[in-house]
Amino acid sequence: MDIIEPLVKIVFIFLITLTTVAYLVLVERRVSAFIQNRIGPNRVGPAGLLQPVADIVKLFLKEDIVPKAANKFVHSLAPLISLVVAMTTFAVIPFGNSIHLFGRDIKLMIADVNVGILYILALSSLGVYGITLSGWSSNNKYSLLGGLRSSAQMISYELSMGLSIIGVLMIAGTLRLDKIVESQAQGMWYFWRTPISFITFVIASFAETNRLPFDLPEAEPELVGGYHTEYSGMKFGLFFLAEYANMITASAIIVTLYLGGWQLPFVGHIGLPDLAVSLLQIAAFGVKVGLVLLFFIVIRWTIPRFRYDQLMNIGWKVMLPLALANILITGVALLW
């Protein structure tokens, strides 16, 4: 089997994701500043575009402090788990139709797994280990509370996340992500067809990525820094990277499942060369992911954090019944 092709794709996606993460941080800072009638970082490089470089250099140069009573091994392992999990989820996401390059058809996803969605669900539940272990190994009560909250939150929301996907799976009739995207051709996005499932899935993604309004694991006012209270230097940076990489993956999943993936309606009919169509589709995927990311950011600066009991109430008493009802509705609609 050809090994070069997957390797090239891996390196390509890895680099793209890392750059996007770096710039996503900048975008988040700029957007939040604009929302608060400020300007935001604009000094490093033209219009502040080199700010991520400065941030990364700063994080690398910071002293790495490990608390005396911490479990050193787990303390260093935890941020790695978070980041690796966040990055590997991207492996099954199709970011374009197959493209014809150098005399061969290249499928634009790293791993063509036939249970793509299950792989994503499995990996994203692994992500909680990073946070919980970091909370436990820091030997700090705030970190521990953050870690515990995160595991409780993940368990509650994973359930409704998995259940809300089922609506899509029932219509598409497959677990392959590329087939799911193909079944959304001609603007028949699942976003229109199963709105309840879309809403519950988006809310659950917010909870899974620990973004506001569900960022209880790191709630600054109550928990200092939550699970990363005792982290500094690049280890903290890894958590930071993981959070934003998670956001990108979550947006990519939302786009793939509900917003038509790389589908761009009508582009197939204008009579462009195949290569141009493929590139346009990749661009469409990028733009969609970007818009969902922007949505994530704006939501963060719009709504306040939920209280812990509210979080659990919404998770178990609202999201779960909604997701179940959605399965029922979809089933009835399919039978018709």
Binding site: F34, I35, V298, T302
Partner: peptide, 10 residues
């Protein structure tokens, strides 16, 4: 919030 993004800055 989106409306605020386009207001003049302080």
């Amino acid at each position: 919030t989106i409306g605020q993004m386009f207001k003049p800055k302080f």
